[in-house]
Design a protein around this nucleic acid. Structure first.
Lengths: 241, 241
DNA sequence: GCAAATTTTGAATCAAATTCAAAATTTGAT
DNA sequence: ATCAAATTTTGAATTTGATTCAAAATTTGC
C-alpha cells in the first residue's frame, strides 16, 4: 500500500515547509524574535502540529542548522569533483563557504546558537545525530583532498592523519565565521574584508604545511584572481562577487 | 563625603558576589538550568536587587563573560612581559589560553552563548561595550608582539597590518575552542588532544608567515617540551599539565 | 528625631514554550 | 456506502521562569 508512503512524503514536505518558514521569519525579524506560535501561524497549522515535528524550539533550531548544512555540503561536493590541483581544491573549499554565506547569510549566526550547550543539549538526541551526520560529508570531501595531496606528493602529512591536518583549516574558517558574525568584535573599518583576509591566512597555513604549489600571500591581485577563477569554474551558476 | 564612595564599593562587591555565584551555579548545574531566582537566592538577596545590577539575564551572561576575560587578560599580559623571542611569546599566548581553559573550564561555552545574536543583542549597550573593552588589552598584547617581531626582523608583514596578521592566529584559536567545547563535533577518540594539535597548527601558520625561528611541527617531543617550558617560565605558580 | 530620598523586597504580572483532551479526519472491514 | 477504531490536528489551558513595581525597609540630611 502506497498510502503510508504518501503520508510519509506529506510529513516530509510539511517539515520542510516549517523549516523554510522559520528561515524566512529569522531573516525578517531576527533570531531574537523567533516564536513557535508565529511559525505555526505562518504555515496555517496549529502549534501542536509543529510540535509533532520538532520536540522543542531547540530541536527546531538544530534541525534548521542541519538543513542549511545540506546546501553547504552540495557546494563542497562540487569542489571535490573539480578538476584542479589539490591545493586549489583545498582553497576552493573556503571559497565554497564564501558562496554559502551569500546564499544563507543567517546560517553562521544560527549555527553559533544551535551548537551552544543551551540549545544543543536541549535538542533531541536524534536531531543532534542528524546535524552531526550532515557535517560528515563535508569532512569527507576535505579528507579526500588531503589524502590525494599526499598521494601525489603535493603534501607531507608529517605524522598527522588527514583528519588531524584538516582540523587546522577547519578551525581557522570556523573562527573567522564566528568573528564576522558577532557585531562589533572586529572593527571592520580598519580590517577590510575579513573573508579576503581569511583566504590569505589560509594560504599562509597551507604554505606552512608545505602544500605545493606554494602561493605568495602578499600578492593581493593574484589572490583575488584566484578566487574569481574558482567562482567562475566551480560556481558559475551562482551569483558571484 | 566618603559615604557615596563606600556605597559604590559595596555595590561593586555585591556585583562580584552575583557573578561568582552565577559562575558556581553554572559549574554545578550547567548553563541550561541557570535561573535568575536561584542566583538571587544563593546570595540571599531578592530578585529585584539582582535586576538592579543586571538589566536582564542576557545582560548578566555578557557581564560574566566579560568578567572571565579579565583573568584571560592577566595571563596574556604575563606572556607580553616575558623575556623571550617574539615567536615564543606568540606561541605563549596560546599556552596562556590553555591555562585559562583549566582555570575557567566553562568560559568558552559561556562565551559562545554570550556572543550569540540572541544574547548579545538583548544585553545592554553598556554591557556590550564593557565586554568589548575587556577584549581590547588582549588584542593589544598580541599586536605589540607582532610589531616587535617585525622591528627585530623575525617577521615580514608583507602588506598586512599587525591587526590583520594577528587575526589569523586569533581565528584559529577561537575556532579550536569552539570545536573543543561542542560535544560530539569532533571524535576525540581518534583526534587525540585537540589543543596539542592546535599548537601544531599554530606553528605551521607561523612558519607560513615566515616567523623566525622556524619550528619543525612534526617533532612532537619538542612541541611538548616547548609548552612545558613556557608553563614553567611564565605560569609556574599555576597548576600545570 | 523626623521627613524625604533611596534601596530592597518578593508577590504579582507577563511572555512564550509546551501540553493534552476534545474535535476532525483517515483507515479498513463489512 | 457506512461505521467504529485508529490516527492526526487543534488551540485553549497550563507551566515555566523572566521581569516588574508598589509597598516596606533603610539611609540621608537637617
Amino acid at each position: 500500500m502506497g498510502t503510508k508512503e504518501r503520508r510519509l512524503r506529506e510529513v516530509e514536505v510539511r517539515e520542510q515547509l516549517f523549516l523554510d518558514a522559520t528561515r524566512e521569519l529569522i531573516r525578517q525579524e531576527g533570531l531574537l524574535n523567533l516564536q513557535m506560535a508565529r511559525i505555526a501561524e505562518k504555515c496555517d497549522y496549529a502549534v501542536g502540529t509543529l510540535y509533532q515535528h520538532f520536540g522543542s524550539k531547540e530541536d527546531l533550531l538544530v534541525a534548521l542548522a542541519a538543513d542549511n548544512l545540506q546546501h553547504r555540503v552540495d557546494l563542497f561536493r562540487r569542489v571535490g569533483e573539480w578538476r584542479a590541483t589539490t591545493r586549489d581544491r583545498m582553497i576552493g573549499i573556503a571559497v565554497a563557504d564564501l558562496m554559502f554565506v551569500r546564499l544563507y547569510p543567517e546560517h553562521f549566526r544560527l549555527a553559533q546558537l544551535a551548537f551552544t550547550e543551551v540549545v544543543w543539549d536541549a535538542a533531541s538526541p536524534e536531531r543532534r545525530r542528524m546535524a552531526l551526520d550532515a557535517l560528515e560529508p563535508m569532512v569527507l570531501v576535505c579528507h579526500q583532498i588531503i589524502e590525494e595531496a599526499e598521494r601525489c606528493g603535493d603534501l607531507q602529512l608529517k605524522g598527522m592523519t588527514p583528519q588531524q591536518l584538516g582540523l587546522g583549516p577547519a578551525a581557522m574558517t570556523l573562527g573567522t565565521h564566528t568573528m564576522v558574525h558577532v557585531k562589533g568584535v572586529v572593527d571592520l573599518g580598519e580590517m577590510g574584508d575579513l573573508y579576503l583576509l581569511m583566504m590569505k591566512h589560509l594560504h599562509c597555513l597551507l604554505n606552512g604545511f608545505g602544500w605545493l604549489p606554494l602561493f605568495e600571500p602578499s600578492d593581493d591581485a593574484a589572490l583575488k584572481q584566484m578566487i574569481t577563477r574558482i567562482c567562475s569554474e566551480v560556481f558559475n551558476d551562482i551569483v558571484c562577487r
